[in-house]
Design a protein around this nucleic acid. Structure first.
Lengths: 171, 171
DNA sequence: CGGCATTGTTATGCTGCATAACAAGCAGGG
DNA sequence: CCCTGCTTGTTATGCAGCATAACAATGCCG
C-alpha cells in the first residue's frame, strides 16, 4: 500500500530537497524521475484511470462523464435554470447549450420555459431511469475503490481532493 | 478540514446506501447532489485546480504541463528514444512528434540520431536551465500544498492517487 | 420608460487525445 | 544474402473539451 522511497536521482542541479516519491506508473516502470511526486501529474494520471473505469461501466449506458454529471445535478436540484446547472458544474454557459440539446434529443431531460428567456431543466422519466442505472453502476465502482483503498481510504481521498480543490489559488 | 455529512437527498429512487459526501465546490455552493462523493468528479475538479496553479507558477516560464513533464523525463533519463519518452508519459507516439518539434524549436531539447531511424532525446543547456527554474517553482507549489494538507496529507494523497492509478481496471 | 444585467444562443479557434495510413529502417529466419 | 515482419518517426484527420467574442431577446430596477 505504501510506496517506497528509492535512492534519489538528482540531475538538473536539484531545485529542492525532500518532496517526491515515484508513482510506479502504468506506463511500464520507465523512469519518470520526480514526476510521480508532483500532485498535478499524479492527479492527472489518477483521473484518467478513473474516467477509464467510468467509460467501461457507466459508459455502457451511453453516458459520458459530463452528461452523467448533468443528470445528477438536475436530479438533485430539479428546476434549476440552464445557466445555473452549468455554473454548478463549472461548465461555460455557452458550451452547455449543445450538451442540453443532446440530452434533450436523447429524451433524458426536458426544457421547461420559466419566462420568455430562461428555461428550467428537468429529468424525463427515461432520464430518471437511465440515471438510476448509471448511479447503480457508479456506486459499484466507488465501492470497488473503497475496498482497494483500505479502511477510510476513499473518504480520506475525497477529503484531500476537496481541500486541494477549494485551496486558495495564488495570484 | 473535514467535510460534514448533510441530511441525504434521495431522489432518483436511490441506487445505493452510504457513500457520498459533498465537495462544497468552487462553483458557488450550488447543489450538485452526490456528485462530490464520486472519485471521478472530485479528481477532475482537483486536477483542474492544480493545473491552474501550475499555469500561474511554472506557466510563467512558458511551459505547459505536458512540456514540463517531458523535460523532467528527459532530464531523469537522458538518451531515451523519442518513443520511449512518449510511452513513459502515456502520450501517443503520434501526438508526441509535434511536442518534440516545439521543444526543439524552443531550443530546450535536442534530437540525437541513434541510427537512421530512431533518435535519442537530450536536454540542451537552455533546457536544463529552464527545467531547473521550473522545478524550483513547482517545488514551491508542492510545499504550499504540503502545508495546506496538514502533516502527511500530501504524501497520503500521492499514495492514494498512486493506488487508484495502478488499480486493476475491470474489463 | 430607459438603461443595464441576464439568458440562451451561434460562431470560432485552440488544445488534448485517438486512429489510420505510410515510408523508411532495422533485425532475424530461412 | 534476402525477404518478411516489427519498429520508429511522421503526416493527416477527426472528435471532444474548453475558452472567448458577439448577439438578440428579455427581464429588472431605478
Amino acid at each position: 500500500m505504501s510506496r517506497t522511497q528509492p535512492a534519489r536521482r538528482p540531475r538538473a542541479e536539484d531545485a529542492s530537497p525532500e518532496t517526491t516519491a515515484p508513482l510506479a506508473g502504468a506506463p511500464a516502470d520507465l523512469v519518470i524521475g520526480p514526476l510521480g511526486g508532483f500532485l498535478g501529474y499524479a492527479l492527472r494520471r489518477a483521473q484518467l484511470a478513473v474516467f477509464e473505469d467510468f467509460r467501461r461501466s457507466v459508459g455502457r449506458l451511453g453516458l459520458r462523464p459530463a452528461q452523467f454529471s448533468v443528470l445528477v445535478v438536475i436530479d438533485a436540484s430539479p428546476g434549476l435554470k440552464q445557466s445555473e446547472v452549468a455554473a454548478a458544474l463549472g461548465i461555460q454557459r455557452t458550451n452547455f447549450v449543445a450538451m442540453v440539446n443532446e440530452l434533450e434529443r436523447l429524451g433524458l431531460i426536458e426544457r421547461r420555459p420559466l419566462d420568455r428567456r430562461s428555461v428550467a431543466l428537468h429529468l424525463t422519466p427515461a432520464g430518471a431511469a437511465k440515471l438510476k442505472a448509471a448511479l447503480q453502476a457508479q456506486y459499484a465502482v466507488e465501492e470497488r475503490y473503497a475496498r482497494l483503498l483500505g479502511p477510510g481510504g476513499r473518504e480520506r481521498l475525497l477529503d484531500l481532493l476537496g481541500a486541494v480543490q477549494t485551496a486558495p489559488r495564488e495570484g
